[in-house]
Every structure is written in structure tokens, then in C-alpha cells.
Amino acid sequence: MSDTPLLELDNIGKYYGNIIALQGVTTEVHAGQVTCVLGDNGAGKSTFIKILAGVHKHDQGEFRLEGNPVSFNSPREALSSGIAAVYQDLAMVPLMSVWRNFFLGSEPTKGRWPVEWIDKSFAKQTAKEEMAKMGIDIRDTEQPVGTLSGGERQSVAIARAVYFGAKVLILDEPTSALGVKQSGVVLRYILEAARRGLGVIFITHNPNHAFPVGDRFLILNRGRSMGNFAKDEISQSELTSLMAGGAELEALQHELSQG
């Protein structure tokens, strides 16, 4: 395990006016490891992602990237620092081919303006190679992304983020819309990305998906951290019960305060 974590969050907090969206969150992401962020709906997961991806700034605590405190002004800034977020909707155009989606917005070109064209053979070959590195063999990079399975689409998004220089990869609920088998496929891509030296932040509400791949677990509930554990500090059943228990506890407190 390396000494300096790739990314470190120390007691991070975020307010929207009076509302506490996130408070006292501490965790770390190491290169080649997967940090899972677990929480039910409304637990503060999306605020958490937005801070990391540069959409919002944190109001409290410290956010360190490779040991240096940072605060991003825009998603582009976060991206150029090597933090790439893959959102649930994937930012894909279903009718467009795999290679076009792969390079969309950053197409490699030949020639000079105004006669400038896409280097198609390079783009196609690179897309295919990068996908192959993720362990997925696209039969034809010309096929529309819409014809790929959900898991394959995730892998295109992940491979794209990796190719464009991501060091930290944030995956927002990549398995939530998928079936059991497809989820397994995506989990394998997550491990593959980590094996290639990336720090992966895997956001999910399913402890069964998180436990097999995670090296570290952060559990959120109503904007607060319920714990930040390394893998050897917690078992799957403890993880599950912590998530479920947290919710029960919450409900109990709610009833008591009313009564």
C-alpha cells in the first residue's frame, strides 16, 4: 500500500444555505484500489460526487489530491487534474458508433483548419485497443452504442475516462440499472480499472456489489458519515447491517421525536 493516498478527504462538509448536505466525511482513495461509497437515497452521495468532480466546492474540511489541498472551480478543472466522473446516464449518444462516442468532444484530427478531418483509422483502432485492455472485445467499433448491453456501455465510458488520462475514476451507481449478470460484468471492469493503477470511487446503494470489489468503504446517511472502514475492518454482514441499521435507527429516532 502506497504512503500518500491519491485522493484524501478530511472532514469534508457542504451546506446549501441552512441545509447541511454533507458533514464530517473522511475517506481516502489509493491508486490501484477501490473505495466504495454506500448510502441510501438522499444520503448525500450526489453532493459527494459533485464536490469531487468540481461541480460544487466544499465548505468545510480539506480535500487533498496527491497530498496537496485543492478546490475545483469547474468540472473541466477536475478533469484536467485527473478526476473523471462517469455518471449514470453515461454521456453517450446511443445512435452513434462506439468509436465516435469514445472520442466525442476530443476527436483526433488530421489536416489543418479549415480542411481538418477526423483521423478515423487511428480513432477506430485506439477505441478497439482501449476496450480490449478493459477486457471487452467490441465486434465492430462502427456499431451504435445503443446496440451494446448496459455493461458494455459502462465499459466504453470507463475506457474513455481512462484513455483521456483519468487518475481517479468516479462511478456513479454503475450497476443500479443492470441485471445480476451485467452487474457482475461491470464489477469486473471496476477491478480491471483498479488493476491498471487507477483510484476508483464506486458509488452504490448495494452492499452486495460493493463488498467483493471494495478495498475501503465509506457509509453515508443523511449527509453524515456512518463510518469509514478498510476492508479488513469490516465484514459483509456488518456492512449490510450498518446500512440497514442506520436506516432503522433513523426511523426509530424519528418516531421517538414525534411521540
Binding site: L90, V93, G105
Partner: peptide, 28 residues
């Protein structure tokens, strides 16, 4: 036809028509 199939502008044309939100997210 050349512009639509071979250039960035053509790619972006397909992208903004197919999924404007997504294409913005990746910087189109």
C-alpha cells in the same frame, strides 16, 4: 457528406441531435 462523416463538426452534429445533454458533458 464529407463534413458530416469525416469531420469533428459532423460528429458533433450527430451528437447534439442524438443526445444533447451527453454531448455537452463530454465537451461538445
Amino acid at each position: 457528406t464529407w463534413v458530416l462523416t469525416r469531420t469533428r463538426f459532423g460528429s458533433w452534429t450527430y451528437a447534439v441531435g442524438g443526445n444533447k445533454q451527453a454531448s455537452r458533458q463530454v465537451g461538445v
